[in-house]
Amino acid sequence: MAAASYACRVAGYFLMAWVPITDRVQAALKAIPLGVMIGIVLPSAVSGKVPELVGLAVVGVAMKLVGNDVVAALLGAAAVAACRWMGL
């Protein structure tokens, strides 16, 4: 799996050398991280379980207050862990 993952990354790097970077391609490349995050977060949000919803709320508040996505993600993970530890 590591070799396959590495091969995909390297192939993408070398294949993108042949793609002209137009405004449309650049906009699509900038949208990829948001699409990946939505794909990760949406199933948890739709499940409606209390720990995941609390974690999402904590991440939202932390992003507003701190503005650092790593800190917000760590606080959200800690909130989910605390809720699960409390049996929610």
Rank of each mutant, 00 (worst) to 15 (best):
M1W: 14
A4Q: 07
A4E: 13
A4M: 11
S5K: 10
S5M: 08
Y6S: 08
A7S: 14
A7E: 07
A7K: 05
C8I: 15
R9K: 12
G12A: 02
G12S: 09
M16K: 11
A17Y: 09
W18C: 03
W18S: 03
V19N: 06
I21M: 06
I21Y: 06
R24E: 15
R24A: 15
V25S: 05
Q26W: 13
A28R: 08
A28I: 10
A31D: 12
A31F: 14
I32V: 13
P33W: 10
L34H: 07
G35A: 06
G35Y: 09
V36Y: 05
I38E: 09
I40G: 02
V41G: 01
P43K: 04
P43R: 03
A45W: 13
A45C: 14
V46E: 11
V50D: 11
P51C: 00
L53D: 01
L53H: 03
V54M: 03
A57C: 10
V58T: 03
V59Y: 00
G60D: 04
A62G: 10
L65Y: 10
G67N: 00
G67F: 05
G67W: 08
G67S: 06
N68S: 10
N68M: 01
N68K: 12
V71D: 03
V71N: 00
L74F: 15
L75V: 11
G76K: 03
G76D: 01
G76C: 05
A77Y: 13
A77H: 05
A78Y: 11
A79D: 02
V80D: 01
V80G: 00
V80H: 02
A81N: 00
R84I: 11
G87T: 02
L88I: 10
L88R: 07
L88Y: 15
L88V: 08
